[in-house]
Simulated assay, not measured.
Amino acid sequence: MSPEVWVALALGLVLGAGATAVAGYFRRREVLQETTLVPHRTRQLMAALQAGAVVIRRDRRSAFSNQAATALGVSRPDGALNTELADLAEEAWRREETIESEIAVQRGVLHTPRFVHARVTPIDDELCLALVNDNTESRAAEQSRREFAVNVSHELKTPIGALSLLAETIEEAYEDPEVVRKFAKKMRKEARRLTKLIQEIIEITRLQSGGSVVDQELLHLDGVVHEAVEAAKVAADAKEIRLVTDLKARPDVYGDRDLLVMALRNLVDNAVQYSDAGTPVTISLDARDGIASVSVIDRGIGIGDKDQERIFERFYRADPARARDTGGTGLGLSIVKHIALQHSGSVAVWSEPGVGSTFTFKLAVHQEAS
């Protein structure tokens, strides 16, 4: 190689080494600065916090953030900050006081928002401390409570309004015994529906307020099935619907007998209500691979795919008009779902409009210790 090439190569090596050295110097300086800003003992204390904790610098980056803050998505290990959190820090410096607010953090490929409560306090002119907590679940719970209150108010208005109108009609036609009897019968029907609605509201509120079932006992599941079928027999006989019990197994499970009977009876009652007169409803019990399954099979009107996704929601009715005719409250399947969850079980549906429906309630089989 010519002397000029050797000189150019040597110069390139010198410049490259110099650039690397300069970059390393600034990185060590940055690390040293961060370590100076947030001492080791402080980092240890922040790392132990359950809440997310971030020390924010004036340049809108973090001097340190614990693992909880990283998991919430408000900061990254490289010092990058959520924009809204950085804005809160600037506002806290401007006001020279603590700022609290809720920020939305977009995470994942679907950019599903999580709602984070942030409390930002200025430490000095260069640093702020932010404490963050995930509010997504509590926000959803609060929304659910509001919707529940609105739905309850709406559902109670219907039978109460009907009773009021019927009472006025009877009052005006008190001299006509036939009219009085006719509307008194309708009043009894609305009163029964109101009573059922109130009972189910109380029941689902109780179920939602608890975790797992406390009063559990060892149960023969076939006995629970028989009790639920017997309880539904009067309604079935009134529609000339034959209840067929098919016991392929007799598994034992742990659970609350009254709640399990209620869940299975709700499934059988639904099958009876939405089946045509003279058709059978089959209640099948089986157990495989440690799982007990109770299936309630009808040949009724069936449920469309769109409705199948929502039928376990509170107050949801696939056919509101027919539900009111049959006295349905829209809470029965929601109660079934919550009872299943409280027993660490599940409930699922298969249905085809015009063919029928199959609801399957699953529980873990009790295994004797060896």
Rank of each mutant, 00 (worst) to 15 (best):
V281P: 02
L267Y: 04
G278A: 13
T279N: 05
R324F: 03
A292P: 01
A321C: 00
V336Y: 08
A318H: 03
A318P: 03
V296F: 07
S275V: 11
G327Q: 01
D298Q: 06
R322A: 10
R324L: 12
I291V: 15
D276C: 04
R314L: 11
A287T: 03
I283Y: 09
R317M: 08
F312T: 14
T329E: 07
V281Y: 04
I301H: 13
E309R: 15
Y274N: 13
S334P: 02
Q308R: 15
R324H: 08
D325L: 14
V296K: 06
G330I: 04
G332A: 13
K306I: 05
V281S: 03
S284D: 07
S284I: 00
Y316S: 11
N270V: 14
F312L: 15
G290M: 04
A287R: 01
S293M: 03
G290P: 07
I335H: 03
A292H: 00
S275D: 13
S275P: 07
R310I: 10
D289C: 02
T282Q: 09
I297C: 11
G304Q: 10
V294N: 06
I301R: 15
D298L: 08
G300Y: 09
I291G: 01
A318E: 04
D269P: 11
F315R: 04
I335R: 05
V296A: 05
Q308A: 14
N270T: 12
S334F: 10
T282P: 02
G332W: 01
S295M: 08
V296I: 03
I283Q: 06
T329V: 09
T326R: 11
T326W: 08
D298I: 10
S275M: 11
A277P: 06
T326C: 12
I301L: 13
V294A: 14
G300S: 12
Y274S: 12
G304A: 05
E309H: 15
P320R: 04
G290E: 06
G304Y: 02
G328T: 09
A271Y: 01
G327S: 12
D289H: 04
V268A: 10
V281F: 03
R288D: 05
E309V: 10
S293E: 07
L333I: 05
P320Y: 05
I297T: 13
D269T: 13
R314C: 08
L285I: 00
G328K: 00
S275H: 14
F312K: 14
L285N: 00
Y316Q: 07
A287W: 02
A287Q: 00
K306S: 14
R317E: 09
I303G: 01
G328D: 12
V294G: 02
K306E: 15
V268L: 08
R324V: 06
P280S: 11
G304V: 02
I301D: 15
